[in-house]
Design a protein around this nucleic acid. Structure first.
Length: 912
RNA sequence: GCGGAGGUUGCCGAGCCAGGUUAAAGGCGACAGACUCAAGAUCUGUUUCCGCAGGGGUACGCCGGUUCGAAUCCGGCCCUCCGCACCA
């Protein structure tokens, strides 16, 4: 459908307000939502799939008599928009280029710079792209009630979020605690993925080291290890030859680490106090005691030790670490490895074997060393156990031993947790990224038992499509622990009980769909009062009967309306999104509802759609395969995209956007347009049987369509009602039926059934054929009770079987027949067949007994359903002749004792 | 490793949950024919192997099992993909 026609209908829908949903108690309600998009850039075909599917469902439910609400709002919380804006301000090339590209999709070239200038204000970015998304979605024909639009940064909404957090706080679900975060010392600030240079391509994470203390006479050394379970295998310590080591006091003991490590420790632990530098000789000149087994070991130099990794001191386990093994050889020290980890099933992956397998000769083979380390780590961690050299820990599997040794170590005061970054990283501004421990981080405590139980109960009640996500959701609920719920900066709502914190962007977006149910009233309350006071929020969104009589009458009225509205609409019937949201957003969504809302307001269903590929590749800006929704609507048309998104892949599987598949879909779509084009008349012909067959089949397709849609097998539904009906019409034409008549008889229902997917096309047709109102607002009834006459279908199947058999014979014999004679089962043989099928051999009339051997041969193919075979054949002789291009005769077969006979459903076919 | 999904005919992809009507929908590709001056588009047919009569063989990752009968149920194995978090 060309864009101007699509625009026309979009205008008409808007003018008529048919998608502005109001309470209508005569109909069942249906609320469908998609998680709000983050407004830092334009959306592409990937996002479009989710919204398209939601719109198809919304429109289908409307078609079936539901009062549907499909609302939408925008997400602005968090740091990315701020970060992008700041980078544009700083003139960072990559970001500027990206936004220039984004803008040139929408703007005349001369406007791009002006807009870009505006984007130095983060609010402008958010506002601009929200506006674009509304436009793009309108062009795609989505039936969204835009009156309910708002953003997560709106003040009235922030009051709602505050209420949510006060409630959670009151229920004891919010906690304070320590938490490691990525941090920049120079900027004195937490850093997120967006702040780190290359943070998006090469993620930086926090790693948990075990700091192990080796006591010495005048001071102790602290080492950092990822593998504390190898502690009994320590033979020596390593320090770097070019590093400044420092002495410091902690809990009245004196320790030594690298200068860099000391700085990091300062961000992670309190009460540490610098004493001064210490010379390497001092470190090398004294002995150290190993924890647990109290052996005396010494420290040596090795070049592989990095002062800026861990504590700058490494404990050496040559038996289980390749670096250490090589380093000992390198340094020419006479130390024998101690082996502490044995493998199950007698596996033989050891330090020695890895070194020889990979051909590692020195510490400079760092790539190979890394690989060997990883291999060894994997093998020993998952398949190893501690041997008899491990004191009280002997016999434990490595997985358990690690925690056992750790906690034992901590208890004895010989260790603590030390956090380190997973790789060296810098901020975009060039300052170093390290790990700091926040002492007073706010958490939502998702681990509370009663909360988990309530959530599991909710999950059990909900609908999941595909069903296997139900289990995934149960798991997600189990996995959730404490989640940090506030940050020091970013757009969003301040924590009501601690104003220095901004509520984190996923935590402020869990129960917002409730606001869709009464956006209008709630916004009015806010604008009248200048706030949305807690007691009013509580009145509107919970069923607590708190007293609101202190407010003016009209505010009270608005609040009551808002409450009624919530009661009518709320409880999201379907929330549709993609699987990456499972373990975060959707889990929070489910759990927060379980805590804050009563059952009728809780979510009813979740549908998860698969990913979208573009030309068989993951969509990414850098690959240039991120096709924007605007381009889709303009270049391909909304209806074609919608049809493609609906029909080319099941909801649960990957959808690959590519021109080949698209052109196949387009052909079908064009075929449909041609069918509906009245100037294109089909040949005047008539074949009652086929026309009845078509009619019956259409009723079956319509029934299947409804059944499949009702269980969200959207693709299946449209294969039935679109592809199969088109094929049926083609069949009618080939079989000499009156196609025009067939089309006319199904026109109304067919157009309606297709409206959810290709609404613009269908409105146009609806109007053309003189139906009243909008197709989008009409109702499609199912014809409950009417059972289709399956005998008509059977007759056609019978005929097609004959055609297939004849073809097979032609193929096998390689002959082109001059004439074909088809002889149907003799009535007496039919009677005999009935008897034989019941295994009553003795009841077969004597003169027919000689036919039994032939019966046994044909038994499998005998089919009694069609009792008017000859009639069917005679009615269709012309068709058969035309198909095989020769004369075709049909007769009743004679009985031929001892020879081949015609059986029910299995006539004799003779080619000459 | 844990959790989840999956391995189907040249390719993509249904079906398997409720075993037989499944050589296995649909699409793409390929081949042949029709139409056309030609190409494209469209339409018709073919597209596992064997077969001069509608038949038979082999097939749904591999190996076993249950069953009269398994792509479909059960057990084991191999392989692929996704998630494992604080990030929107």
């Amino acid at each position: 459908m060309n864009p101007s026609i699509e625009r026309k209908w979009q205008r008409k829908w808007e003018e008529s307000g048919i998608f502005q949903s109001e309470i209508d108690r005569s109909k069942p309600k249906f609320l469908i939502t998609v998680p709000w998009p983050y407004t830092n850039g334009p959306l592409h075909i990937g996002h479009g799939r989710t919204y398209t599917l939601a719109d198809v469902i919304a429109r289908y439910k409307r078609l079936r008599g539901f009062n549907v609400l499909f609302p939408m709002a925008f997400h602005q919380s968090g740091t990315p928009i701020l970060a992008f804006s700041e980078r544009i301000r700083m003139g960072e090339k990559k970001t500027v280029r990206q936004y220039r590209e984004n803008l040139s999709e929408y703007e005349e070239p001369e406007m791009v710079d002006k807009r870009l200038e505006e984007f130095k204000d983060p609010e402008k970015i958010a506002a601009y792209f929200s506006e674009r998304i509304v436009k793009d979605f309108t062009y795609l024909g989505y039936s969204i009630d835009w009156r309910r639009r708002f953003t997560s940064a709106d003040p009235f909404y922030q009051d709602f979020v505050k209420w949510q957090f006060e409630k959670l706080h009151g229920m004891g679900l919010i906690k304070k605690g320590e938490y490691p975060i990525l941090y920049s010392v120079e900027d004195k600030n937490a850093v997120g993925e967006d702040d780190i240079s290359d943070g998006d391509v090469d993620k930086v994470s926090v790693e948990e080291y075990t700091a192990v203390i080796f006591r010495g006479e005048s001071f102790s050394l602290i080492t950092g290890s990822l593998r504390p379970e190898t502690l009994f295998g320590v033979t020596n310590l390593w320090i770097s030859p070019n590093c400044r080591y420092v002495k410091f006091k902690m809990d009245s003991n004196t320790y030594v680490v690298s200068n860099e490590a000391f700085e990091k420790l300062g961000l992670q632990r309190s009460n540490i106090e610098l004493i001064g530098t210490v010379s390497s000789d001092e470190i090398l000149n004294q002995a150290y005691i190993t924890p647990f087994d109290g052996r005396k070991i010494r420290a040596y130099y090795s070049s592989f030790v990095d002062p800026d990794n861990g504590t700058g001191i490494v404990y050496s386990v040559p038996g289980h670490a390749v670096w250490d093994f090589i380093a000992i050889k390198d340094a020419g020290i006479h130390i024998k490895p101690i082996y502490v980890v044995d493998l199950k099933n007698g596996e033989k992956t050891t330090v020695d074997s890895l070194i020889s397998d990979l051909g590692i000769s020195s510490l400079s083979d760092s790539d190979k060393l890394k690989e060997a380390t990883q291999q060894l780590y994997k093998v020993e961690f998952y398949g190893g156990f501690l041997n008899q050299n491990n004191g009280e820990f002997s016999g434990l599997p490595v997985k358990e031993a690690r925690d056992a040794i750790k906690s034992s170590l901590f208890k004895l005061g010989n260790g603590f947790i030390f956090y380190e970054v997973s790789r060296k990283a810098q901020t975009r501004g060039g300052s170093k990224v390290v790990v700091a421990v926040l002492k007073d981080q706010w958490f939502i405590d998702y681990s509370v038992d009663w909360w988990k139980k309530a959530s599991h109960d909710l999950v059990s009640r909900m609908l999941f499509y595909p069903e296997f996500y139900r289990n995934a959701m149960h798991d997600a609920v189990d996995w959730l622990r404490e989640r940090p719920c506030a940050r020091r900066r970013g757009i969003g709502t301040r924590l009501p009980f601690n104003q220095e914190w901004v509520i984190e962007s996923l935590s402020d977006s869990t129960i917002y769909p409730a606001v869709y149910s009464n956006t209008d009233q709630v916004m009015k309350i806010y604008s009248e009062l200048g706030s949305f006071p807690e007691d009013l929020v509580n009145f509107v969104y919970s069923d607590d009967d708190n007293d609101i009589s202190k407010y003016p009458e009209h505010i009270q009225r608005l609040a009551r309306e808002a409450r009624d509205s919530r009661k009518y609409w709320y409880g999201v019937d379907v929330r549709l999104t993609t699987s990456p949201h499972m373990s975060n957003h959707l889990a929070f969504y489910v759990m927060n509802h379980a805590a804050l809302f009563r059952e009728s307001d809780q979510p009813k269903g979740i549908i998860i759609s698969g990913l979208v590929l573009s030309n068989s590749a993951k969509i990414s800006k850098s690959k240039g395969n991120a096709i924007s929704l605007l381009k889709i609507a303009n270049k391909y048309s909304a209806d074609l995209y919608r049809l493609f998104a609906t029909v080319n892949a099941d909801i649960s599987s990957i959808l690959d956007w590519n021109e080949t598949d698209l052109s196949a879909v387009k052909r079908k779509y064009d075929a449909f347009l041609e069918i509906m084009d009245e100037s294109h008349r089909y040949p005047e012909q008539s074949n009652r049987q086929v026309e009845d067959w078509f009619d019956t089949n259409f009723r079956i397709h319509r029934k299947e369509f409804i059944e499949k849609m009702d269980r969200y097998d959207i693709r299946g539904a449209y294969v039935s009602i679109f592809y199969e009906v088109i094929n049926d019409l083609k069949y009618v034409e080939n079989r000499g039926g009156d196609v025009n008549k067939c089309i006319e008889s199904i026109r109304r229902d067919w157009i309606l059934a297709l409206t959810p997917v290709i609404p613009h096309t269908c409105e146009e047709l609806w109007e053309k054929f003189g139906f009243d109102g909008f197709a989008s607002a009409a109702e499609l009834k199912d014809d409950a009770g009417e059972t289709p006459d399956l005998r008509i279908i059977d007759s056609e199947n019978y005929l097609q079987n004959i055609v297939r058999d004849v073809r097979e014979i032609m193929k096998a014999t390689g002959m082109t027949p001059q004439q074909i004679r088809i002889e149907t089962c003799n009535p007496r043989i039919r009677e005999a067949a009935v008897i034989l099928l019941e295994n009553r051999m003795k009841d077969v009339p004597v003169d027919l007994r000689s036919v039994i051997p032939d019966f046994m041969k044909n038994k499998r193919n005998i089919d009694l359903t069609n009792d008017r075979e000859l009639q069917v054949l005679r009615d269709n002789l012309n068709y058969l002749s035309a198909t095989f291009k020769c004369k075709v005769f049909a007769d009743e077969a004679r009985i031929e004792p001892g020879k081949k006979n015609a059986w029910p459903g299995r006539p004799l076919i003779r080619l000459n």
